[in-house]
Design a protein around this nucleic acid. Structure first.
Lengths: 227, 227
DNA sequence: CCCAATTGTAACAAAGGCGTAACAAAAGGT
DNA sequence: ACCTTTTGTTACGCCTTTGTTACAATTGGG
């Protein structure tokens, strides 16, 4: 997955550095701008996935940049997080003619900013989405509720079993190697034996009852969910 | 603008006539039902904008109709005004497991009833798209008043407990991870341990009494409010 | 038909999650 | 300033989950 690109518009060099360090550390690509002119130019070159915008800047203010971005339809929906020194400006920023998506009051903790970035980006992808339920035959997996059913009856799955099942269904029809499953379900940090997958597949099959055979063994490769 | 449709459930014909006359005179559309069975059937056909419900009726009582309406999510937020003969029943009606929105004691003046109807309807539209009172079973949470009731009895919740409860109810049926709860209830600035959530869930459950089990633990994931 | 590789099964010990309770810090009211 | 309430942290213990291991069963190839 390609990392999201964040445009930082900030004149204070200390804050520039702080932001760059933390954002890159969190896996984001960072483009730096020292003022509004640079920002508008940078946006023309490449539309970022999110903009962090200082309100008070020499030259064009954050206000103006924001308005400018919103005016152009190519950038109108790019989320903007405002940095502001004073809390009482907040009302005018969010949901205003400006239409910033969120704001952070200086001085801010990098942790907080990262959380807000995540939330804003997620809102974009999650909003308006239907209830994510995966269905296949008698099987039904409701991701939001974190419930799984066989013929309407709920299964008592553990967290790992649930994630495993969800992953298998998502990639139904395609084989998943044990390594792939380990990465998807257990995460990349996990360093254990691949046979762990087998154990969980077994437990899952037991609980699936009639649907046990929906998880097929592909000998020498891994497992595959029936399509 | 199309006039609001009011469902009147009342067995006494005199009162039926009185209500019909006054409500139509005030510009409302009126549907009449003589008992609870008819009422539930009428609702299925068309969901009214408001229900006026007599408490004492042959067959299904107003109590039962009310509970039934609240149970079905399509009608759970339809405002209900109760008609009751005795004043001392009142406490059990409003904010009760029943969750009627208001009540009028018989004998009532048409003028008074009209005022209450207007007030209830206005509350609904003014309070915006989002229902300001959340209801689920015996539980009722009034966001404006910052009050919560179980079976009509008010809970003494702290600010945090209230926000937590409100968030859980809003996302009822969906799991909320501890991180999500921390962000929603404590805010992004909060930098603390996820177990803090547990503590507050516990306190909340204690105060919820009979409704404690409406907050379900989803092991390895988070918490979920019963749907 | 036999062998070796692979997977299923079962059992076990370690790890982890959560409820519970107690405590200390912080906030709020008088 | 004092007391009370609220809030966040910490410690403990129970129970569930989890990863590993050993062993049995299965598979496919020669």
């Amino acid at each position: 997955m390609t990392s999201e690109n964040i445009l930082v518009v900030e004149d204070d060099e200390d804050i520039q550095e702080l932001l760059t360090y933390n954002l890159q550390g969190a896996g984001y690509g960072v483009t730096l701008c020292g003022d509004g002119y640079q920002a508008l130019e940078a946006v023309r070159k490449r539309i970022p996935d999110l903009v962090i915008l200082d309100l008070m800047m020499p030259g064009i203010s954050g206000f103006d940049v924001c308005r400018e971005l919103r005016r152009d339809e190519r950038t109108a929906s790019v989320p903007i997080i405002m940095l502001t020194a004073r809390g009482d400006e907040v009302d005018r920023i969010v949901g205003l003619e400006l239409g910033a998506d969120d704001y952070v009051v200086k001085p801010f903790s990098p942790r907080e900013l990262l959380l807000r970035i995540k939330a804003v980006l997620k809102r974009l992808t999650t909003d308006g989405r239907e209830n994510q339920t995966l269905r296949k035959g008698a099987l039904q997996v409701d991701l939001d509720a974190h419930r799984a059913y066989v013929e309407g009856e709920e299964l008592q799955l553990t967290a790992t079993e649930f994630k495993l099942l969800a992953d298998l269904i998502r990639s139904r029809g395609r084989v998943r190697t044990r390594d792939q499953l380990l990465n998807a379900v257990w995460g990349y940090e996990f360093d254990g034996y691949a046979r762990t997958v087998d154990t969980h597949v077994r437990r899952l099959r037991q609980k699936l009852g009639d649907c046990a055979d929906m998880i097929e063994t592909v000998r020498g490769v891994g497992y595959r969910f029936k399509d």
